[in-house]
Design a protein around this nucleic acid. Structure first.
Lengths: 348, 348
DNA sequence: CACAGTTTCGGAAACGTTTCCAACACCTCC
DNA sequence: GGAGGTGTTGGAAACGTTTCCGAAACTGTG
C-alpha cells in the first residue's frame, strides 16, 4: 500500500493541482484559501491549519504566472554580471543566492558582455516585466546606462563597482590599495611598481580606487615616480606574468610589486620564479582579494569578503522591496594578510 | 525638442504598455497583434510590419506572466549546481547562458547544497511551475533524487555528472584518466600515485571515471600496487597540498602523481616546491581540466572543454523543448596538453 | 435580548495574454 | 455567376491567482 500511495503522489505531481482544488477539498472559498496560504490576516486559525494541511497533502505549489498577473510581484531578482567564470563573480553569487533563497526569491542570471547583448539589455530593458529588482555586479556601466536602468521601475542595487544613482555595496577600494602600498613602504621599499587591471570589455578605465591609492602614495610618501613602474594590463594571470616580465626588464627593476588582484599577482609570481628569482628575497609581491589559491601560494594580500558583498547587496535590495530604509552606500573594510611574498628590500 | 522626446520615452517605460495599447494604435485586434508579435502565420505582411513598428515605438515588452498563464510556456530554464564559486561551474554557466540567451530563454539559477535547501528542492520540486526545463550540473544526485526530478513534468538534461534517467553531457572521464596515466607510464614511470577528489557535500563517492582508469591501469600495466599511492581528499588546492605531503612522506615517494583536477595539482605542486623539490626533475605531476592558471604554471594536464559542455547541454534541452530528437548521452573527448611538469623519472 | 464592534468568509472582477473558431474577403476555375 | 479554396481578421473564452467589498458570524457589554 505504501508503494501505491507513493505512485499516486507522483502521478499527482504531473497533473498540477490548483488552488481551486485545495479550496474544494478544504471546504472554503478561493479567497480564504489564498489568504491562508499567503499568511494574510482574516482567516480563523483552525481554517488556516486545515487549508495548509490540504495543500501539503496535494503537494500544491502556486502558479507563479497567475500569482504575478494578479498580484503584481514576480518574486524574482535579476543578477547582472559581465563574466561568469571568474572567481569574484562566482563568490558574489554564492552570497546573493543564499540571501535570496532565504527570502523566497528566485535568481535570474544575466551575463551581459559587449555588443548586441549589452545594447539589447540596456536599451529595451526586456527584464523589466520579469523581475522585482536588479543586482548589478561589477558592470562598468556608463552614466547613460545607469540612468537608463533606473527607468525600469524596479529596485536596483549595485555591488563591486562604481558610484551609481542607486544604492551600492563595495569594499573600500582605495583603502585596500592604501593598505597594500603602506605595507610595502613600511617594509622599506621605495621603488614600488603596480600592475593595474583594466576590463577587456570596458571602453575606458579611469585611475581610481586601488590604482589611485598607489599614485597618491607615490607623491605623499616620496616613492620613486618612474612612470614605467605603473603597468596596466587586462586582468588574467598571463597578463600579470607579462607585465612582471616588463618590470624585470627595466634598467632598475622594482624591489616590490603591488598587483591589482591576486590573479595578476599569481602571474607575476611565476615570472619571478622563471627568472630564477624569489619572493621575498629578491622582490616582494602583494595582491588584493585573498583568492582561494593565495593561501596555498603563501601570497601576501589584502582580503576582501566577496561573499559578504553579495549577501549585503541582496539584503539591501530585499529591504528596499519591503519598503524599509536602504543605506545608499555601504563600504566593507579590507584586511592585510601578511604571508610569505613580502619582506624587506634586498640591500644594495 | 530632442530632450523632451527622450523624457516622454522614459516616462513611457515606467508606465507599462500592454498589447491592447499596441493593438489600438495599430488599428487591429488583440488576436492579430499577438500573431504578428509572435511570428505566427495568418497575418498579412503589411499588417505585421505595422504592428511591429507600433510595438517598437511604444517600447512594448510582453507581460511574461500573462503570456505564461495563457500559453503555458515560461521560457525559463533552471540551472541547478552544487557550487558557484568553483571555476568549473562558472565556465559551464558561460556556455549555458550564451546558448539560452541566443534562443530567447532566461536562466534561473539554483544552488543546491546540503540540508534543508536540498531536501526542499528535491522533495517538493517548487521550481516545477516556474521553468520549462532543468539543467542539472555536477550534482551527485542519488537515484531517488533523479527519479523524483523526472516527475517535474519538464525537460531535463544533466552535465558534468553521472549516469541518469535523462539525457546527459559529459567528458570521457575514464578516457581522461587513461590519457593522463598513459602519459606517465609512457615516460617510464611505474610508481605512480593518484590524488583523487571527493565532493565534500556528497555522502559517498565511488571509484569511477578518472580514478577507475587509474586503478585499472595499475593492474593492466603492472604498476606499483601500493595502496598508499591512492589518496582521496576533498577538492581544493590545500587538500591537494596535504595529500602531496603525505605522498612525499612515504618510505619510497612516487615518481609521478596524477591529480583528479588542476586545482589539486596546483596544491601538490606547491608542496613539492616547499619541499625543495622540482618538476619534472624530481617528480612529475599531471592534472585534469586545463584550468586557466595551468598554462601559467606550465602544468601538464588533460584538457576538457567545459564551456562546450554547457553549450551542448543547453542545446540538447532546447531541442527537447522544440520536440526534436535528443541524443540520450553525449560524450566530449579530452586532450592531453604536455607542458613542463612531466618528464622521465629520475634515475636511481 | 439588543446593539455595536470585530473578525471571518465568499463572490466577482481584474490582471494581460493566447488561441479557437466563426465570419468575411479575395481569388481561381468551371 | 456560382462554387470551392485560401488567407486574414476579430470576439470571446480560458488561463489561475489576488483582492476589494459586502454579507454573515461571532463576541462583549449594558
Amino acid at each position: 500500500m505504501a508503494k501505491r500511495t507513493k505512485n499516486d503522489e507522483l502521478a499527482q505531481l504531473a497533473r498540477n493541482v490548483n488552488m481551486a482544488d485545495v479550496a474544494r477539498a478544504a471546504g472554503v472559498s478561493m479567497a480564504t484559501t489564498s489568504r491562508a496560504l499567503n499568511d494574510q490576516p482574516g482567516v480563523a486559525p483552525a481554517t488556516r491549519e486545515r487549508v495548509l494541511e490540504v495543500a501539503r497533502q496535494h503537494a500544491y505549489v502556486v502558479s507563479p504566472a497567475a500569482s504575478t498577473l494578479s498580484g503584481g510581484a514576480t518574486r524574482r531578482i535579476a543578477v547582472v554580471v559581465p563574466h561568469l567564470s571568474r572567481w569574484f563573480f562566482g563568490e558574489v553569487l554564492e552570497g546573493i543566492d543564499a540571501t535570496l533563497r532565504g527570502a523566497g526569491y528566485d535568481l535570474m542570471l544575466y551575463r551581459v558582455g559587449e555588443g548586441a547583448d549589452r545594447d539589447s539589455f540596456f536599451e529595451l530593458l526586456p527584464a523589466r516585466r520579469k523581475v522585482d529588482g536588479v543586482l548589478v555586479v561589477g558592470i562598468p556601466a556608463s552614466e547613460a546606462e545607469q540612468e537608463r536602468l533606473t527607468t525600469m521601475g524596479v529596485q536596483i542595487v549595485a555591488a563591486g563597482g562604481q558610484v551609481a544613482p542607486y544604492p551600492t555595496v563595495s569594499i573600500d577600494d582605495h583603502g585596500a590599495g592604501r593598505q597594500a602600498v603602506n605595507h610595502l613602504v613600511n617594509l622599506g621599499h621605495r621603488r614600488i611598481a603596480m600592475i593595474d587591471a583594466i576590463d577587456p570589455n570596458a571602453s575606458h578605465w579611469p585611475v581610481a580606487g586601488r590604482a589611485l591609492a598607489f599614485t597618491e602614495a607615490r607623491e605623499e610618501r616620496d616613492l620613486d615616480p618612474d612612470p614605467e613602474l605603473f603597468q596596466r594590463v587586462p586582468w588574467s594571470a598571463r597578463h600579470g606574468a607579462e607585465a612582471m616580465a616588463a618590470l624585470l626588464a627595466l634598467d632598475e627593476p622594482p624591489t616590490a610589486v603591488l598587483a591589482h588582484s591576486d590573479e595578476l599577482a599569481i602571474g607575476a609570481l611565476h615570472t619571478i620564479r622563471r627568472a630564477g628569482l624569489d619572493t621575498p628575497r629578491d622582490i616582494s609581491v602583494v595582491g588584493i582579494d585573498d583568492h582561494p589559491l593565495s593561501e596555498e601560494l603563501d601570497l601576501t594580500t589584502v582580503r576582501q569578503d566577496v561573499r559578504e558583498q553579495g549577501r549585503l547587496a541582496a539584503r539591501m535590495l530585499l529591504d528596499g522591496l519591503a519598503g524599509l530604509d536602504q543605506a545608499p552606500w555601504t563600504v566593507l573594510p579590507t584586511r592585510l594578510v601578511i604571508r610569505g611574498t613580502t619582506g624587506r628590500p634586498r640591500q644594495g
